[in-house]
Simulated scan of single mutants.
Amino acid sequence: MTFRDTLEGIGIDQLSGNFFEGWPNSPSTPTFLKLLEQSYAVELAVDEDTGNMVGFIQAISDGVLSAYIPLLEVLPEYQGKGIGTELVERMFNRLSDLYMIDLLCDDELQGFYEKKGMQKASGMVIRHYQNQVGVVNS
Results as ranks from 00 to 15, higher is better:
22 G>V: 01
25 N>R: 13
32 F>Y: 11
65 L>R: 14
93 N>I: 04
83 I>A: 07
12 I>T: 13
51 G>E: 05
129 Y>I: 03
20 F>L: 07
27 P>I: 00
68 Y>I: 02
11 G>H: 11
126 I>L: 13
89 E>Q: 13
91 M>T: 03
9 G>Y: 03
79 Q>I: 06
3 F>S: 02
119 Q>N: 15
76 P>Q: 10
125 V>C: 12
95 L>Q: 00
2 T>A: 10
28 S>P: 04
38 Q>T: 15
62 D>G: 03
99 Y>Q: 15
123 G>V: 08
50 T>L: 07
46 V>G: 06
80 G>L: 08
93 N>K: 15
12 I>F: 06
20 F>V: 07
105 C>P: 00
11 G>W: 07
100 M>G: 03
105 C>A: 11
65 L>K: 12
22 G>M: 01
3 F>R: 02
60 I>R: 10
95 L>E: 00
132 Q>F: 06
125 V>M: 14
81 K>E: 13
75 L>H: 05
94 R>E: 11
39 S>A: 14
109 L>R: 14
36 L>M: 11
83 I>N: 07
74 V>D: 08
121 A>H: 04
84 G>T: 10
64 V>G: 02
124 M>H: 09
119 Q>S: 13
41 A>M: 11
91 M>V: 03
136 V>L: 15
32 F>K: 01
62 D>C: 03
95 L>K: 01
72 L>T: 04
54 V>R: 10
20 F>D: 07
114 E>C: 00
60 I>V: 15
120 K>F: 04
78 Y>H: 11
70 P>R: 09
21 E>K: 12
36 L>S: 03
130 Q>A: 12
127 R>N: 00
45 A>D: 09
110 Q>W: 07
92 F>R: 11
59 A>M: 02
37 E>Q: 15
48 E>C: 09
29 T>R: 15
136 V>F: 15
40 Y>I: 06
106 D>V: 03
138 S>C: 02
66 S>Q: 09
65 L>M: 14
118 M>W: 00
25 N>Q: 13
18 N>M: 11
5 D>N: 13
52 N>T: 02
23 W>M: 07
52 N>A: 09
96 S>G: 01
76 P>Y: 10
50 T>M: 06
126 I>Y: 10
79 Q>N: 06
6 T>G: 07
29 T>A: 12
21 E>D: 12
3 F>A: 00
134 G>V: 05
122 S>R: 14
138 S>N: 10
37 E>K: 14
30 P>K: 06
95 L>A: 01
114 E>N: 01
92 F>D: 08
62 D>L: 03
128 H>V: 12
83 I>R: 06
131 N>S: 09
96 S>Y: 02
61 S>E: 02
31 T>P: 05
55 G>M: 01
136 V>M: 14
136 V>K: 14
3 F>Y: 14
57 I>P: 00
88 V>R: 00
1 M>K: 08
17 G>V: 09
120 K>D: 12
80 G>P: 08
46 V>P: 05
74 V>M: 08
60 I>T: 11
4 R>Y: 03
46 V>N: 05
24 P>L: 03
97 D>K: 15
40 Y>R: 06
134 G>W: 05
10 I>K: 04
42 V>Y: 13
